[in-house]
Write a protein that binds this DNA or RNA. Structure first.
Lengths: 141, 141
DNA sequence: TCGCTTGTTGATACTCGGTCTCAATAATAT
DNA sequence: ATATTATTGAGACCGAGTATCAACAAGCGA
C-alpha cells in the first residue's frame, strides 16, 4: 500500500516533514540511511529536523512499510516488498538486492504454529562479494 | 567449526580475554548482547575490558562464526548455524528462534549468479507475536 | 472560514553503544 | 630464555538515536 495512504488510514496527520521523508524515500536509493533521508528531505523542506526524520522512519517501520537493516553507519532502511532480499558482503559492506526467493511459504507454517502475525520477511545471505572474494584468495578458511 | 579452533587456525592468538568471551558465548543465551558478554565474561576474567569484547565479537563475526542482528539496545549476536532463523516481534522486541526452514537451496543459485561466496544466511520473519497480537485487537490495519 | 483541539515539530541537551589511542602486557616462534 | 609483535585495558572520544518541551499547524466541527 501507498505509504501516504497508510499514514492517513491509520489516523496520522499528513505534514510537510512527513511528506519530505516520503519523497526522499521514493526518490532516494533502495537502501537509505536516516542521515541520507534527512539531507535528501531538506531539499523539499529545508527546515526538516533530525528528530522528525527518526520519528517518521520509526513510525513507518511500526506500520510495516519500512524495515531497518544493520549497516556500518547505524541502520539503513528498505521498503518492505514481497520477495525482496539481500546479499550482504562482510568484506566491503556492500548490500546487493535479489528478488524472487521462491521460499516465501515454508516458513509461514512455522509462524502459524507460533501464532505469530507475519508482517513481512527478509532473507539475509552474508559472505563475500566477488571483489572481496578475490582479494582474499590464498587465505585459509 | 569450534570457535577456538577457528581462531587458532587463522593465526589469531588464544588469550584470556578471548577465552572469556568464548565461554560467555557458550554458556550465555542464544541471543546475547555485547554488554551481556562483557558482564558474563568478567566472571571468568574479571579484568576483561569493553574494548576487548567488541574486538573479539567483531573478529568472530568477520570469521563467520557469529552474526550480529539488530535489537533495541544495539546489536545482539547469534552463533551462525545452518537453518537457524528468527521471528522478530515488532511489538515487544521478542526474538524467537525456529529451525528447519527447508529453503536453504533456492537462494543459493542467486548467490552463485552474483559470484558471491556464501558464509551463511539468516531469515528474519517480522510481525507480531501472539501476545502483542491480541493487545492490538481492534486496530485498523 | 474561523477557531479549537491535540498530534506534530524543531532545537537542543542528552544517552549510551561502539571506536580510537597508546603505553603496557603477554602469546608465540626461535 | 629472549625477541617479536599481536593484543590488551583504561579512558577519552564519536556519533547515531532519544527525550524534552514550548511553539506550531493539520484536521475537524461549527
Amino acid at each position: 500500500m501507498d505509504m501516504l495512504t497508510l499514514l492517513r488510514q491509520r489516523g496520522h496527520r499528513i505534514t510537510r516533514p512527513r511528506l519530505a521523508v516520503l519523497q526522499a524515500l521514493a526518490e532516494g536509493p533502495a537502501h537509505i540511511s536516516a542521515a541520507e533521508v534527512l539531507s535528501e528531505g531538506r531539499r523539499t523542506h529545508p527546515g526538516l529536523s533530525k528528530a522528525s526524520v527518526y520519528r517518521t522512519l520509526q513510525l513507518l517501520e511500526t506500520l510495516g512499510a519500512l524495515r531497518g537493516i544493520p549497516s556500518p553507519e547505524g541502520r539503513s532502511f528498505v521498503r518492505v516488498a514481497p520477495g525482496h532480499h539481500h546479499l550482504l558482503c562482510q568484506g566491503c559492506g556492500e548490500v546487493r538486492d535479489f528478488s524472487g526467493c521462491g521460499l516465501c511459504d515454508s516458513w509461514r507454517e512455522v509462524a502459524d504454529e507460533e501464532r505469530f502475525f507475519v508482517a513481512g520477511h527478509l532473507l539475509e545471505v552474508f559472505g563475500l562479494c566477488s571483489g572481496c572474494r578475490s582479494k582474499r584468495e590464498g587465505e585459509t578458511s
